[in-house]
């Protein structure tokens, strides 16, 4: 483990909203080129952690280092292009699949070539004929795949996935899992994946973090979920039926 580089290093990070502490003095590492799965009960602060990482929130105290540099030293736009974030409900803007896919480049005043669009759609397993379709006509799985493809347009070195398979059927879930592993291998992208599915966390993750009440209770190789050391984590894992 010591030979691994830190993609994101958290040092004593605390974050609160209106006096309520959401993240408590968190210290830990997301390793470069690896898949880290984040598990924990609802309200544990997992999504907040992503927003801190993507620069949508700022920590009250502590340091977050991205590729060894303090997060505040990155201009916000540059940081968000580097740390891609696929939202839980695969939010889309009104328009076609192509318009949504091209959005990260449109925001920079550039165009997404048809070739590149096709390549991305193929990578995430969407038919290229879907390009002119309205996003309103897509299924949940298709929306999630498009959301991932859209995040990839910025070629992020870190990809944050917030419960992207929670509302999908088993087949779509497996599709997305295979896709994420493919992206990790293909681009060497660091992946951090919030999931409620402990089985998924074990099989997909190289490493796993267990967050409870805004605290990192246990972290390490994903096999930790088989035999957790911490009692709270043991209870959490036992209570999971997925």
């Amino acid at each position: 483990m010591p030979s691994l580089n830190a993609a994101v290093q958290w040092n004593n990070v605390t974050f609160s909203v209106k006096g309520k502490t959401i993240i408590h003095n968190l210290t830990g590492t997301f390793y470069e080129g690896k898949i880290t799965t984040l598990v924990g009960p609802s309200g544990a602060g997992k999504s907040t952690l992503f927003k801190l990482c993507n620069g949508l929130h700022t920590a009250d105290t502590g340091d977050i280092l991205i590729a060894g540099k303090e997060i505040a030293s990155y201009p916000p736009v540059e940081l968000r292009r580097m740390v891609g974030f696929a939202l839980q409900d695969a939010t889309m803007i009104d328009g076609t699949v192509y318009e949504n896919l091209a959005m990260p480049l449109t925001l920079q005043g550039k165009d997404l070539s048809e070739e590149k669009a096709q390549e991305l759609l193929q990578l995430v397993g969407l038919p290229i004929t879907i390009s002119t379709q309205s996003t309103n006509d897509l299924s949940g799985g298709q929306r999630q795949k498009l959301s991932i493809a859209r995040t990839l347009v910025n070629r992020p070195s870190i990809l944050l996935l917030d419960e992207i398979t929670s509302s999908l059927d088993r087949v779509s879930q497996q599709d997305i899992e295979a896709l994420i592993v493919r992206i990790n291998k293909h681009y060497g992208t660091t992946i951090v994946w919030i999931t409620h599915n402990l089985q998924q966390a074990r099989t997909i993750g190289d490493y796993t973090w267990v967050l409870i009440d805004g605290q990192l209770i246990e972290s390490g190789e994903s096999s930790l979920l088989d035999e957790p050391e911490n009692n709270e984590v043991r209870l959490f894992v036992k209570g999971d039926n997925s």
């Binding site: 939202l87 939010t91 803007i93 925001l107």
Partner: peptide, 20 residues
């Protein structure tokens, strides 16, 4: 608000995020 946050998260500016 979700669309606003989406555009920001993809590297858009505040003006782009609330343009619509």
């Amino acid at each position: 608000s979700k669309e606003t946050e989406l555009i920001l998260s993809l590297g858009g500016t505040p003006k782009q995020a609330v343009h619509k």
